[in-house]
Amino acid sequence: MAGTGACPPGGRRGQWCREPGRAVTVQTSAGVRERLAGHRERFDALFAEYFTAVGGQALPRSSFVPEALDLVRDMSLRGGKRLRVALVHEAARLVTDEAVAGADAAAISIELLQTHGLIHDDIIDDSPVRRGAPSVYYAYQERFPERPQTALGLAVLAGDLAAFLSVRVLLDAPVPAPLRQAMAAVHASAAADTVIGQFLDLERDFGPVPGREALDTVSDYKTARYSLLAPLRLGLLAAGGDPDAHGEELARYARLVGVSGQMRDDYLDLFGDAALIGKPAGSDLRSGRRSYAVCAVLAAASGGERELVQEALDAPGCPPETVARVQDIARRHGVDEHLRAEIRRGAESASAVAASWRGRWRDDAVEFFERLPLWGAQRAL
């Protein structure tokens, strides 16, 4: 991971810094992992308790309703890094190191919104598996093999259930009504932006090959606004902060981290080790998706090379041999190196934005936000 540049503003010994001609320092990666793991362990128990409480509420006599709730519960508890949960609590820690009423409700809410997105994404993508088990959509297909429209409708409704539960959590939060309303407004805005992002994501694969700005806009709307910006704003609100006073820089941080993270995922999809990422390389190519990596190959390829890449995109399910040929084309043109450099650049820019928060917010929480994007980038490189 050699590179050029300097430590971000506020950089200190032990942080993620780069010096000319030297590798990125990774001394703090364990600290980020430990913080994320601590949030995840506590939250998973809390999330399970939440679903137990919801299941204990009076429900109409039905087999479909509890089954849908069980599927939403299973999808929600199935795993994940719980990054959104960590961001809510770490954003609250920017303001105070005391326990913050409403932070748990905000974390549950944003994870339920994530569940909604996963269920609907799997419908849109016709994905049979999610996190090592059947997707909700395919669980319903197995339940109703002779009634595909019923299976589709029930999967849509299960995703909707997760979405509306996510709003109700905030409206029931143990905080004053004005704060509940403010958090619900952040949540609703993030949810709407995410749906817009899904439209943009589907549109990306039609018409001319999208440029960098268009790809960044998709990443911003589909991922960054609900996975990064909304948790930041919710955590600050819960702790008594005013996210609107710092809206532009919070949005910039979220966009930089979101774009860098999506580019990392797209890089790993094409160039990652299948044994490490848990799936064969090239799933975006085989699905006809114009990811950052695929678009970069199309932009760099020439003549017959470009035709081969385009044919692979246009023929869903291309064989591993075709994926390998596209990888060779990409490496010949330095696409892999270019993407790694862009991932690093975005992560460093995000770290610099967070470093500028020193003096305004608590240093140990600021440090987490400085380290996080660089830790994420390092996982790809």
Rank of each mutant, 00 (worst) to 15 (best):
P8Y: 15
C17K: 01
E98N: 09
A45G: 14
L59N: 12
P316Y: 04
R225L: 10
S349D: 14
E19Y: 14
H338C: 10
S166C: 09
I110F: 10
V95D: 05
E34A: 15
L46D: 15
Q57P: 01
Q198V: 03
D172M: 09
G14N: 07
R371C: 08
R131C: 01
L179S: 07
V294N: 08
R255K: 15
L215M: 05
H116P: 04
V353A: 12
E311C: 06
Q15V: 08
D122L: 03
V100L: 03
R286I: 06
R82S: 01
R379K: 13
E321L: 03
A365C: 08
R379Y: 05
A315W: 08
G80S: 05
P128H: 03
E311V: 02
P208R: 04
S283C: 07
L152E: 09
A101V: 08
D104G: 09
G247C: 07
A214S: 06
T96W: 10
F64V: 15
P243S: 04
G21L: 05
A275N: 12
V169N: 09
Q57T: 10
G117M: 11
A91G: 00
A191T: 02
A354N: 03
T150W: 09
D201P: 15
D269C: 14
S227H: 03
D205T: 05
S351P: 01
C295T: 11
A6V: 04
E321C: 00
L232M: 14
Y50R: 15
L237S: 10
A365P: 08
S166L: 08
E98K: 13
E146M: 12
P373A: 06
M75R: 13
I110D: 09
C17I: 05
A107K: 14
L200K: 03
C295W: 00
V186H: 02
A238N: 03
P316Q: 02
H338V: 14
A184K: 00
G197D: 02
V297N: 10
V309N: 01
E41C: 14
A301E: 02
E111T: 11
G132M: 06
D201F: 14
P20H: 08
F51E: 07
T223Y: 06
K222V: 00
L165G: 04
D363G: 06
G258V: 09
A315N: 13
G153L: 01
E307Q: 13
T194V: 12
R13C: 11
L374Y: 09
D126N: 11
A188E: 13
L372M: 10
E307I: 01
D336E: 07
E146L: 13
A23C: 08
L276R: 15
A37V: 07
R18D: 00
C17F: 06
A238T: 05
G10S: 06
D205H: 12
S219R: 01
A6L: 12
A99Y: 04
D74L: 13
